[in-house]
Design a protein around this nucleic acid. Structure first.
Lengths: 343, 343
DNA sequence: AGGTCAATTGTGAGCGTAAACAATAATCGG
DNA sequence: CCGATTATTGTTTACGCTCACAATTGACCT
């Protein structure tokens, strides 16, 4: 027993130490910590003073063990170095913090079903209470849908058609706005540089573009396809620059638009005088492209925030509403678009 | 006791359930799980079969409680939507996973000392075993240095001069390479668009640039300062375009270079014919600027990886070597640089 | 004043796991 | 074939906390 005080110096203080110092029971300390009612103010003050004096920190593992709640949510993310995913993660983290949760991340190297499964399992093993999947690709989302039995999962950034709750931007209406804007400027038709197959974003944006042209009775040109990268946009741009009758191009994202702009520039096609270009995303750099890019803005941070809200709602007992939240995008007009100069 | 089997359906299985099914003690299950020696192969197989059958998952909170290890590391990150921080986070996560750790993130809204303190405390309360701070600003790093008493902390992306272990790119030598490259092309001097004050990156890159000019006996022009954003680069670019004697500019990062390129373009100054431009970072888009940007590449993912390795080494008992790891950057030559055309 | 009810505090029992310790079975050398 | 090791398995305890319940105190009402 003579070691008790010596212990206090080597050991991290625990609740019992605080209790002893404050002259109360450990349960009273617990009450103070958890804001339980029926604690006399004077007692509370003594406890708080003891906590401060010992620099006591509750042990989260012990708490999690007994409450069966880890206060932690998981995020599965893919291509997390890109602006979109990174922004969503940021939005998620902020929202999680204000909801009182910690955030644990697991990034994916590839989007196949097994990887997603693995990542979610990993997070589960860590004890997360729910998971947000930042995974826009069709295959990943359907993979998630399969395994979501034991733990709440929400997908974000993807207009999934699966059964799990989803938060996404309305890609369709964004694409419609982009195509319509170009038609309104007098372009007889609009070419499209699409994202890779297998991505719902690709499909929805292409679909919105196509419908708009059809509704306007415009010819629907063959679609070019890229992989979201500036490089693929550049390569597609070289092919497009070789075509004579192009006056407007809608790119499925800003990075490809960047590559396209350079290819057009090198091909001697002026933007917007010869060709108008519209992107999608509104990455921070888009306003400083040459020329500044007209694009469809998605608020990635907002997407993340909404996804987290949905997850928290589900954790709070709402009976899995299988909700589908859509955030409206907004077209931002810049100098890469203009009226046609030749008929 | 009749409820025991019924329980198994509603409860998550625990180690005792596995033990009972396999006909062994829970301790033997624990041995199998932790790869302890002295378990007969047949016994091990029976245990593994029981684990599979029940889909048993060890409770991480219980394990953390008794081992006093959470298997979790924290990452404090600032401006995590940018390419650099996002890539470092990605590198950290990957390295952490392969080292057997989970990663919990806390993002900062601002870089003042209080925020950093708060974020680290938050992670500590969650029980992380160590923290990586992605925080290049001087103030943040010194804030970290103060509080790092109770938990290992490593800083990354910043050439801190403080006492905590650090992983950073060699900004000085990168800047030297950039400036020297321009001098070698025949430019009589090089202008500099620096990052904001208070960032070690800014200081080191400016220092490298200055030393190179001085060593070559070149005139050292007044420094323009931006805030890392393309917008600030654009504004500085407008001022620079108005100067008559500029033939080469070294920008402290690629985003500002992007803005600069547009300002020069709008100002009728051709790159590289009239003015050569070099950036820093080599973001993925840099190769698709107009013209493609010569820049100094940092491998952010590698930085993150190395930071994590350092942290893990420290956790493994190395007596806080106060190490300082520097990763060498590499200049990437593209078309934004060229020889001077006028004397 | 006696008693009731609410406020306040304390006590004991796990939560699910790993570590220390104990016990038993198997192996080996002479 | 016997004692000494060693391999294999089991039993007990403790990790630090919250919950359920018990106990005590004080206020308030008739």
């Amino acid at each position: 027993m003579g070691t008790e005080t010596a212990d206090l110096e080597s050991r991290q203080p625990v609740m019992a130490d605080v209790a002893k110092l404050a002259g109360v029971s450990h349960q009273t300390v617990s009450r103070v910590l958890n804001g339980a009612p029926h604690v006399r103010p004077g007692t509370r003050d003594r406890v708080l003073a003891a906590i401060r004096e010992l620099d006591y920190r509750p042990n989260s593992a012990a708490r999690a063990l007994v409450t069966r709640r880890s206060q932690t949510l998981g995020v599965v993310s893919f291509e997390s170095t890109l602006y979109g995913p990174a922004s969503m993660l940021d939005g998620i983290e902020r929202a999680a913090r204000s909801a009182g949760y910690f955030v644990s991340v697991a990034s994916l190297r590839s989007l196949d079903s097994r990887s997603v499964q693995e990542a979610v399992d990993r997070l589960r093993d860590q004890g997360v209470e729910g998971v947000v999947v930042i995974a826009p690709q069709t295959s990943a989302v359907s993979a998630v849908a399969k395994l979501s039995s034991s733990i709440p999962v929400v997908a974000v950034g993807s207009g999934t058609r699966s059964s799990i709750p989803t938060v996404s931007v309305d890609n369709l209406s964004g694409a419609v706005a982009a195509a319509q804007q170009l038609l309104d400027l007098g372009h007889s038709t609009v070419h499209h540089l699409a994202g890779p197959a297998g991505w719902l974003e690709s499909q929805d944006r292409q679909e919105g573009w196509r419908r708009t042209l059809e509704a306007a009775g415009a010819r629907v040109p063959a679609v070019e396809t890229g992989d979201w990268s500036a490089r693929s946009g550049y390569e597609a741009g070289q092919r497009i620059a070789a075509l004579a009758d192009v006056t407007a191009v809608f790119c499925a994202n800003d990075h490809m638009a960047l590559g396209l702009l350079r290819a057009l520039h090198e091909g001697g096609r002026s933007v917007p005088d010869d060709i108008s270009v519209v992107g999608f995303d509104d990455i921070p750099e888009a306003a400083y492209f040459i020329p500044p890019l007209t694009t469809v803005r998605q608020d990635f941070g907002e997407l993340g925030r909404r996804a987290l809200e949905l997850l928290v709602a589900e954790l709070s007992g709402a009976t899995r509403p299988s909700a589908r939240v859509r955030v409206a995008p907004e077209i931002v007009l810049r100098r890469s678009t203009g009226p046609v100069h030749r008929a």
